[in-house]
Write a protein that binds this DNA or RNA. Structure first.
Length: 408
RNA sequence: GGAGAGAUUCCCGAGCUGGCCAAAGGGGGCAGACUGUAAAUCUGCUGGCAAAGCCUUCGGUGGUUCGAAUCCACCUCUCUCCA
């Protein structure tokens, strides 16, 4: 059986490791409990988290036990790594709610049955901490000099860093220690921005427990241009279908840059590597086939096969000849609203295609709006009930944004 | 606690010897052309509205003025240096 470490390495996940050889050996000979921390700062996970879920799934498949650590306690402090500003603090209820949502999303890729994976909240132990004992037991092991030279604080040292946030590293290190004690967790993984926090924990366990602990970071999911992936103009690409529809999710991957296709296939799908290499080497327009597979596979993992098929069908139909279909993003509009007709500019706002009339006016004046594949050339166009065929009307903004309006 | 610097439209960043400022430039975004639902490139747009006009905007509140992003006072916040 191949070592997971090699799998992760081959697929390009790994950025840095504390003890590369030892980790590889450990993963090869025993079932290792490991953890990744997640901040419950939003009510859904996004693509960046998905990458980490995939890693956990690879690990679990190889017989290791994942711990999903919800940072209920640490998120009350806020990780300053790579951030330019202090984060807002969340209430307990929000954190609770967000964690519930997370678990549902994790369950798609990770099996939590019979303790094969665990989900814990670090508020359980962090909230109880007493200041003096904490300083005496944990604080004494940290050198401020060393912390200040850490890469992750560099940016903040120029902009200002509060003592509150400065403590984040201690808390995360303490998490690792606590998980080591409770679950014999020996390995922490995380994004490469977590490197110094992870190191802190590894060293802490070595000092306090005189035990070996390890850390591993993955590459952040970035585009070939170095930008963070999974961000669009309208925000993150979420895993929650309410926040990012399966169709939009599919389209996001369908539209990745040529240069990113192979990387995405390796990191975000479970297709075998030789197949991925083949797909990645397709030339010219051919590479669209690889993109379709990427989009389909990732959508399937996140939203299920059913939704993935629907999204794919919709995309194909729309881009082939503009036929309307059920799985295209759709909005409903009550019949009564259109009794006296509705100006096109108002309609655009109503269905959320534009955010102001000026924007709609510009869109139309620049020839970017189509109704049933006919370019709209007047901003005074009035939409009435009789314009709908079968109670449906297909709008298109630009080349790729379709919206089906249903009359109800 | 003391001394200084600053807060501008989505972001960065000009303007700050008062009217020509809805505010340069860049980034980002949107649209058009080209194309492969890619990239690169080129073009236009990018506060709102009942649109040759009007309204709201330059950290906040007041004031000076015919007129303020620009001047004055107070406040809030941020940064730098000193303790």
């Amino acid at each position: 059986m191949t070592n997971v470490y090699d799998v992760l390495k081959e697929r390009g996940f790994i950025e840095q490791a504390t003890h590369e050889e030892e980790i590889r050996e450990l993963l090869g000979k025993e079932s290792v409990t490991f953890y990744i921390g997640f901040d419950p700062t939003a009510d859904s996970l996004h693509v960046g988290h998905f990458l980490q879920m995939v890693v956990m799934a690879h690990m679990q498949k190889a017989g290791h036990r994942p711990i999903v650590l919800i940072g209920g306690g640490t998120s009350m402090v806020g990780d300053p790594s790579g951030k330019t500003e202090m984060r807002k603090m969340l209430t307990l209820e929000e954190i609770q709610y967000n964690s519930e949502r997370f678990k549902a999303q994790f369950s798609r890729l990770i099996d939590f049955d019979n303790g094969r994976a665990i989900m814990v909240n670090n508020a359980d132990w962090l909230a109880e901490l007493k200041y003096i004992p904490f300083l005496r037991e944990i604080g004494k092991h940290f050198s401020v000099n060393r912390m200040l030279t850490a890469e992750c604080y560099k940016g903040r040292l120029e902009k200002g860093l509060s003592f509150l946030e400065f403590n984040y590293m201690l808390m995360q290190s303490y998490d690792f220690l606590e998980l080591y004690r409770r679950y014999n967790c020996k390995l922490q993984m995380g994004g490469s921005d977590q490197w110094s926090n992870i190191l802190g924990g590894v060293e802490l366990i070595r000092r306090v427990e005189r035990a070996s602990a390890y850390g591993l970071t993955f590459k952040l999911l970035t585009t070939s241009e170095g930008k963070k992936m999974g961000k669009t103009e309208s925000g993150a690409v979420w895993l929650d279908p309410e926040k990012t529809s399966p169709y939009d999710f599919y389209q996001y991957w369908r539209n990745v840059d040529d240069r990113d296709v192979e990387k995405c296939l390796a990191l975000l799908t479970f297709l075998p590597m030789d197949e991925i290499k083949k797909l990645g080497s397709l030339e010219g327009a051919e590479i669209n086939r690889a993109k379709e597979i990427l989009a389909f596979e990732v959508t399937k993992l996140v939203h299920g096969e059913e939704e993935a098929k629907k999204a794919q069908k919709a995309a194909k139909a729309l881009f082939a000849n503009g036929a309307d279909l059920d799985s295209v993003p759709a909005t409903e509009i009550p019949r009564t609203k259109l009794k006296d007709g509705m100006g096109i500019l108002d309609l655009l706002i109503h269905v959320g295609l534009t955010s102001s009339k000026s924007e709609g006016r510009r869109l139309i004046q620049q020839g970017g709006l189509y109704i049933e594949d006919e370019r709209v050339d007047s901003i005074d166009l009035n939409i009435e009930e009789k314009d709908f065929r079968d109670n449906k009307l297909m709008l298109r903004k630009g080349k790729k944004t379709y919206l089906l309006i249903k009359l109800v």
